[in-house]
């Protein structure tokens, strides 16, 4: 079984997680830029964070044979702090980078006018840089937020096939399916979505344009819930090809639209196996 986790915040995870993920078949991840537990107060903090997503974190992942790509954005929550608005000016230089395969996470948190503006501006950047967009849907007032999200996506002129709308559930999946966008589901220990519920959604809505992620971060979350969902699919009678479609081929197809998804093994990584992290840091 090969697993591509299309949404996981590895910066917040330990090397034990990388080892467990690799042992269970996770071979590639995408790490979206998002908020941290502690709100940031200036663009410089974001620059260092973005640099980590295209520098240190891919290197760390490579020590465990995992390919790491990133998405870059000013997230909706911090977009509401005027001190962070300058992050939008930093974005073009990051969107050019090899490891950046989408604009994201963008979308709504509290659905403020500022969020409207920043969401639309970043969808325009996705069009300009010919990148797909990863769109977060709000945790509060999700149904209304998802509907409004799809309206903004439509208005922006971006191809629906270039948009992944994430954190969906039984209530919001239908309208996203009808929009032509890709559908993301974050499998969480207690909250957003569980493996058995996910299996039911796949039974009802099919496997096309469906993506499953762990969205594991600094909160209570589990990077192996992608694997648990794959196992729940098999137990429910789905085939190994079905599992491969949802847990590998779909995320590859979505992010490959960037023209930058690189899943080849690098010679450099092989040469320098046994680096500082495996040896306990320097």
């Amino acid at each position: 079984m090969r697993i591509f986790d299309p949404h996981i915040h590895m910066t917040s995870r330990t090397t034990d997680d990388y080892a467990a993920m690799a042992a269970h078949g996770v071979k590639a991840v995408v790490e979206p830029a998002f908020w941290l537990g502690q709100p940031r107060t200036n663009p410089g903090s974001f620059a260092d964070y973005f640099d980590s997503l295209i520098g240190w974190e891919p290197f760390r992942a490579a020590q465990y044979g995992i390919k790491h790509h990133a998405t870059i954005a000013l997230n909706p929550k911090e977009a509401n702090d005027p001190r962070c608005r300058g992050v939008l000016d930093l974005m073009p230089r990051y969107l050019d980078k090899d490891g950046v395969v989408a604009v994201g996470e963008i979308g709504y948190d509290a659905m403020t006018p500022v969020e409207d503006e920043v969401f639309a501006a970043q969808l325009a950047m996705a069009v300009e840089f010919e990148l797909p967009a990863l769109v977060h849907t709000p945790h509060r007032d999700k149904a209304a937020g998802t509907k409004r999200t799809l309206d903004v996506v439509k208005e922006s002129g971006i191809e629906p096939g270039h948009v992944l709308v994430d954190h969906l559930n039984e209530v919001t999946v239908g309208i996203v399916k009808d929009s032509g966008c890709w559908m993301g589901f974050s499998i969480y220990p207690d909250t957003k979505m569980s493996p058995p519920r996910m299996v039911d959604i796949l039974k009802e809505h099919g496997l096309e344009r469906m993506l499953v992620n762990s969205a594991a971060d600094w909160g209570k979350s589990d990077p192996l819930l992608t694997v648990a969902t794959a196992e729940a699919m098999l137990a429910a009678g789905f085939t190994t090809d079905d599992v491969d479609l949802v847990l590998w081929q779909n995320p590859v197809a979505f992010y490959a639209q960037s023209g930058k998804l690189d899943l080849a093994e690098s010679a450099t990584e092989a040469t320098f196996e046994g680096s500082s992290i495996l040896r306990g840091g320097s």
């Binding site: 240190w56 290197f59 450099t268 320098f272 320097s282």
Partner: peptide, 9 residues
């Protein structure tokens, strides 16, 4: 100063 073996090398 980094911990990236490629850069240090």
């Amino acid at each position: 100063r980094t911990n990236d073996t490629r850069l240090v090398a």
